[in-house]
Each structure stands twice: as structure tokens, then as C-alpha cells.
């Protein structure tokens, strides 16, 4: 099988290697690496991943500068064509800043940088990314962020809930996110943004392997499609 994935690295990304390793371990194919200044993505990609980190030093707002970098125009075009895009942590912030996902990620309600494993609940088990989970399944996945407090107006939140676009919810108090939202999908279901780090929970040595099914779901869904 061939599975062509790409991981985008921005200046200040620091989870790009972990994400590439996770994609390679699960798919068996090395992920291609793309630089923020590239104007084009490699051809015929099956999957695009935006990693965690502190792109551009979190200047202005987390993800704000990265969202306007040259590669993001190509990512937005690919997302528009239906190519799956996964944004984790800073990657999620880049997706909201670029308008590919609604809402914004604000400073954690308690002002602290939160770095620990949290309990999540799978809210939508039908999406490309979450088909390997059961609805309501409890997961243990690490978070490591300062700006993970998801905000959107009530109408947007109602729409997200009504359309089944809340992929993951925190099952404990974490960062003040509206309706405990930890991850959301775009309208077409091919873009997922989430604050927790599934790539840090794929091997027994990580303390949890609950993130693995996310990559497996996506790869299985794409290869069988």
C-alpha cells in the first residue's frame, strides 16, 4: 500500500518529528516533510499534518503568523479538494487562525501552561479520523498547551454540536474550553483540529496507546477508499 502523507514544519514547530514518526509507524511509509516557506505541497498527498509547537514564537496570537505563511494557501486549497488535514495543538491553532476551522483558541482559563495526560471522550466515531473508536469511548491522551481554551459564539457551538462536528471532548476540567471541546471537524469532515497529542500516545512506552487508532482510522479509511 502506498500512503503519501506530509508534515508541515513552521519555524518553532517542535512536534513535527513525533508526528512524522507516528505516521510512519502506523502507515509503514515515511512522511514527507514540508517547510512553511514552500509555496506548493508534494503531489498526490493522501494526508496533511500540522504539528504542535510554538510557530513564530506565538507572536501576535498562537498560530496567527503560521496561518499566513505561503504553505498554508496550498494546505487550504488541498483541504478544499477534500484532502484530509489534521492539526494538533499549535496545528489546531493554525487551522482556526486560517479560517479552516471555526472559533479561536484562547489563553487557558487558569493562565497556566498545562502539560499532563487528560481524559477525553470520543463524541463522533463516524469521521475519517475517529472511525476506529467507539462513540463515548474514554481515552487518555497528553496535552501540552498554554492557549487551548476553545472559544466560539453560541450559534457556532450549537451548529458544531448539531452537525456532529465535536470530535473529542475533555472528560475532566482542563482549560476552560467552551462545552469542554477538545477537537472539532470542518463541515466536510476532512479537517480535524485537536489540542491533545495523539502522536504522543501510540506506543506502550508512552503510557497510553489511545492515540494510535486515530492514525489507523485515517490510514485505513484512505487506503480502502
Amino acid at each position: 500500500m502506498s500512503f503519501r502523507s506530509a508534515v508541515v514544519t513552521f519555524p518553532g514547530s517542535n512536534c513535527d518529528r513525533d508526528l512524522a514518526v507516528a505516521l510512519e509507524k502506523v502507515s509503514g511509509t515515511p512522511a514527507l516533510r514540508v517547510w512553511h516557506g514552500d509555496a506548493e505541497l508534494p503531489e498526490k498527498l493522501d494526508f496533511i499534518a500540522l504539528p504542535g509547537g510554538f510557530s513564530y514564537g506565538d507572536y501576535l496570537r498562537s498560530g496567527a503568523m503560521a496561518a499566513r505563511s505561503p504553505i498554508m494557501q496550498a494546505v487550504a486549497q488541498a483541504a478544499g479538494r477534500g484532502v484530509p488535514v489534521l492539526g494538533i495543538c499549535n496545528g489546531f491553532q493554525v487551522l482556526t487562525e486560517s479560517g479552516l476551522l471555526p472559533g479561536a483558541l484562547m489563553r487557558n482559563a487558569n493562565q497556566h501552561f498545562i502539560c499532563r495526560t487528560v481524559r477525553l471522550s470520543v463524541e463522533n466515531s463516524q469521521s475519517l479520523f475517529t472511525a476506529g473508536y467507539e462513540a463515548g469511548q474514554a481515552l487518555h491522551v497528553p496535552v501540552a498547551h498554554h492557549d487551548g481554551n476553545y472559544f466560539a459564539d453560541e450559534d457556532t457551538l450549537d451548529r458544531l454540536e448539531g452537525e456532529g462536528r465535536v470530535a473529542f471532548r475533555y472528560a475532566e476540567t482542563v482549560n476552560g474550553s467552551r462545552r469542554d471541546i477538545a477537537g472539532i471537524l470542518n463541515e466536510a469532515g476532512n479537517v480535524l483540529g485537536m489540542m491533545p497529542h495523539p502522536e504522543r500516545a501510540i506506543e506502550r512506552e508512552h503510557g497510553s496507546t489511545d492515540g494510535r487508532a486515530l492514525f489507523e482510522s485515517a490510514i485505513r479509511g484512505l487506503v480502502e477508499a
Binding site: 496570537r61 482556526t96 479561536a104 484562547m106
Partner: peptide, 9 residues
């Protein structure tokens, strides 16, 4: 609108 402010918040 395009960069300096995030119009969502």
C-alpha cells in the same frame, strides 16, 4: 481584519 485582530474574539 486579515492579521492584526482575530475577528472571532
Amino acid at each position: 481584519r486579515q492579521l492584526l485582530a482575530n475577528m472571532v474574539i
